[in-house]
Simulated assay, not measured.
Amino acid sequence: MKKIVVANNKGGVGKTTIASQITYSLAAKGHSVVAVDLDSQRNLTSSFENSPVIGDALAMVTDAKPFNADIEAGAINIVVGHKDLQAQNTDDVMVNVSNALANSKGADFCVIDTPPSFGEVVYGALLGADYLLVPIELKKYSLDGIETALEAFIAAQEVNGDLQLLGFLPSRFDAVKEVERNALAAVASEFEQVVIRHQIRNRVAYVVAQEDGVPLSEVKTKSGKEAQAEFGEFFDWLYGKVNGGA
């Protein structure tokens, strides 16, 4: 099972939207997928409220309880979030999350949404995962945020040598704003090797899909079609990466 963590130490960058659409896209490819919600806000859980529940993230954090999925091809199961996740700050949280993910099985892919921090829960996820994807907004402090995420990745990789950085994905990008175009150019120049050459734009369709808990293909508007094409190009790139492509 390939495990993809979607993380950033800042909220409002579209993590949950990206995690949910990756999950839908993997299922559309015929893969069995488990979505894991490690955020106390439980937005990913809301995105898949009609999917079978196979676990509770709080049990992963407090008891290192893995999930054992038995999923058909193309199906999605969910490990639901819990309101008390934010309060879990004990020393064994990181080890519990890592062990829970490492011992989980039964699906082709696991997509993990995380809280807006690089605390014990997120480090635990990184220690038990295969890939890290970092959505970023192109604002004034983007460069500082990238450096923080890189430091977290390097620290986790020292323990989990199999962890790979997929890269930094520009999210909620507004190409009309000069300040964001300039920020993208600066980030791409400074971090050329790790910035993904795709952008997720600031489109209404992403908000609709997230609120309705549906894949972009079900948003039947002009914005939906544009978002589906845009996200599809990014997903094709990601899919190649996680399947051994260049």
Rank of each mutant, 00 (worst) to 15 (best):
F168M: 10
E120G: 14
I18V: 15
L238S: 02
G145F: 07
G244H: 04
T16W: 05
G232N: 03
S98D: 07
F67R: 02
A73Q: 03
K29V: 01
A246I: 12
I146A: 10
I196V: 13
V204E: 11
S104R: 02
V187W: 02
G245K: 06
A156L: 07
N77R: 04
I146N: 11
F153D: 02
V159F: 09
I136D: 11
A155F: 09
V80W: 00
A64Q: 10
A73M: 06
K139A: 15
D113C: 13
N202C: 13
A107C: 12
I146G: 14
A156I: 13
K139T: 14
P66K: 05
K65V: 08
F234D: 14
V34R: 04
P170W: 06
S104C: 08
G12V: 14
I78C: 01
A152K: 01
L238E: 05
V121M: 07
T16F: 00
R197P: 15
A64S: 15
G55K: 05
K105D: 11
N68V: 12
P115S: 10
T45P: 02
D84W: 07
I76S: 09
L38R: 03
A205D: 02
I78R: 01
T114Q: 04
Q21V: 15
A205E: 08
A156M: 04
S46E: 12
T23V: 15
A186K: 11
G232R: 05
P52G: 02
R201S: 14
S171H: 07
H198Q: 13
I154V: 14
A59V: 11
V187N: 08
V6W: 05
I22G: 06
E180K: 07
A209W: 06
R197D: 14
S25I: 15
N89Q: 08
Y141Q: 11
A156T: 11
A28S: 15
I71Q: 07
E147L: 09
A27Q: 04
D130F: 06
D212P: 00
A64N: 09
T90C: 03
L26N: 03
V208Q: 06
G145C: 03
V122P: 00
T90W: 03
A185K: 11
N77I: 01
I112G: 10
G119P: 01
A246R: 07
N50Q: 13
P215K: 01
V121D: 01
V79R: 00
G30S: 04
K222N: 10
V93R: 01
G55C: 12
D70G: 10
L101G: 04
F118N: 00
K83R: 09
A149H: 05
G240C: 02
V36D: 05
E226L: 14
F109I: 12
A28P: 06
D113N: 12
D39G: 12
V194T: 14
N43W: 06
V111G: 10
W237D: 14
V179N: 09
G244F: 03
M60A: 12
D130I: 02
L85T: 06
A64M: 09
T45D: 03
S51T: 11
V5W: 06
I22E: 01
